[in-house]
Structure formats: C-alpha cells, structure tokens
Design a binder for these strands. Sequence first.
DNA 1: CCAACTGTATTAGTTCTATAATACAGTCAA
DNA 2: TTGACTGTATTATAGAACTAATACAGTTGG
Lengths: 129, 129
Amino acid sequence: MISFDTFKPTEGTPIYQQILLYIKRGAVAGTIRDGDELPSRRVLSALLGINPNTVQKAFHLLEEEELIVSQAGAKSVMKITEEKIQKLREDLLREDIRSITGALRQMGISREEAFKLIDQFWEEEETES
Amino acid sequence: MISFDTFKPTEGTPIYQQILLYIKRGAVAGTIRDGDELPSRRVLSALLGINPNTVQKAFHLLEEEELIVSQAGAKSVMKITEEKIQKLREDLLREDIRSITGALRQMGISREEAFKLIDQFWEEEETES
DNA sequence: CCAACTGTATTAGTTCTATAATACAGTCAA
DNA sequence: TTGACTGTATTATAGAACTAATACAGTTGG
C-alpha cells in the first residue's frame, strides 16, 4: 500500500496535480513500484482532508496516462514499466530544471552563485528530516 | 520605458502572477530601475494579447506591495529602494531554490547529479539566446 | 484649450478548481 | 451469500482567473 505520509500539499497549485506529481516522483525515486496498491479514493480523501472527487480526478488522470489500472470494486494498482519510468524521469527533470535555471538567469544569478545556494538548501533539508 | 520583449507567459500559472514575477526579477537583476516608466495598461495588454483587466490586476498588486506608484492620467512608475530589492532577492531566491531542491530530492536525485543537469541546461539556454 | 492618452471602476459571462451529496454496480473477505 | 468496501457517475454550488464591454475622471502634449 502506497503511503502518503510525506505528502504535504502546497497552496497555489491544484491538489489533484500535486497528487499526480507525488506518485510520479515516487515512481522515479523507486519508492513506488509496479504492482503497489493505492489507497481507495474515499480513504485517501479522508486522510488528506480533501474531497473524494479531487482524488478521483487525480487517479483518473493517472489512468489516462496508463500509470495505474482500476476496476470497479477493487483497489487501483500501479502499472509501470522501466521504460515508462525513464520517460517520466526525463520529462519531470527537464521541466523542473528548465524552470529554475530560467528564474535564476532572469534575476542575474551566476551559475556559481546558484550552486552555492542549492548547496545551502540541500543541507538544510537534510538536517531537518 | 520598461520593455516586455523577453516576457513569455507559460501555461499553468496565472498571467497576472507572471507579470508580477517578471517585474520583480527584473528589479533584482537591475534591468528594471527606480523611476522607470511602465507601459500603460491598455498598451501592455494589447502587446501581450491579454485583457486589460488582467494587467490592471498585476499592477494593482505591485502598487499594494509599494513597488510602483500610479495616479490617474499619468503612467505608473517604479518606486524601489535598495532595501526593497534586497528583500525581493531573498524572498524570490528562497522560494525558487526550495521548490527545486524539494522536487529533486523527492525523485531521489543526488546533489552531484542535480549540478550536472543544471550545468547542461544553463549552457543550452545561453547558446539559444 | 482640448483631444488623446492615462488610471480606475463596475458589471457580466466562461472556464477551472474544489466541495457536496448522492446513487449504482462490481469485488472480496468473513 | 452477504455486507462492507471498492470504482464510477451525476448534479449542484462556490470561488478564482480571465475575458469583455463600458464608463468616468485625471494628465499631458501639441
């Protein structure tokens, strides 16, 4: 059963999109594997304190992307191949890295300065967990 | 007159927020300075192909943050001190860096791997401009 | 001066996000 | 078998983001 213990929604972006990202990043990291069961829509919505329809929207999109399989009555299950994981990895990384480099360059930050800042935050987050 | 030549809106985030960020990042970079005139609401909306009210929303927020001054009949003007720029710089960088490090760590990317990826994209964007 | 530009305000309608309340049918374990 | 859980579907409501059309008042340059 996939755990949502480390899922912490942020304001500003749709929750259903954040659920999508959480699953995809977990798959890329290897903490979510092929065959893993997802919590039911009702259970997860109660756990996160959101509406069941919001969870349904996220799961429905996962199904459209063929990352999970669902059938009425049974729990949804992850269905991911190595190939899909590689594609996810490339897509997610490209988008993330492109956005940060764009932002930093717009602010006139040098590459060296950027590395220094990232180093700082990386350690901060390591020590707080 | 502040130029919006390098402004390219992205799908997924509100346009008025992107205008806000564009101005703030320009101020941090030093390409937008105290006293600089902004294009009028009507002119900018026509230039970007969006509704005047959307531009008005962005400018209104800039006014609330006391980064610009406006008076009926005259063009809006940047009003930023060194102190405000420093605060902007810290706030924007913190948010940007935190989001990227969070995303990469969720995907199990190492710091070294992250640096390598950023290096790649940095050069890509330099060569394309 | 005055016409053309400026900022500001209001009202209306569409799409998207999220909530809310149900309802129905399939699965599965006791 | 059967009852509790599953996925799925429908309808309604509310707020935010964005578009659209319009109006009014202040400024500024020719």
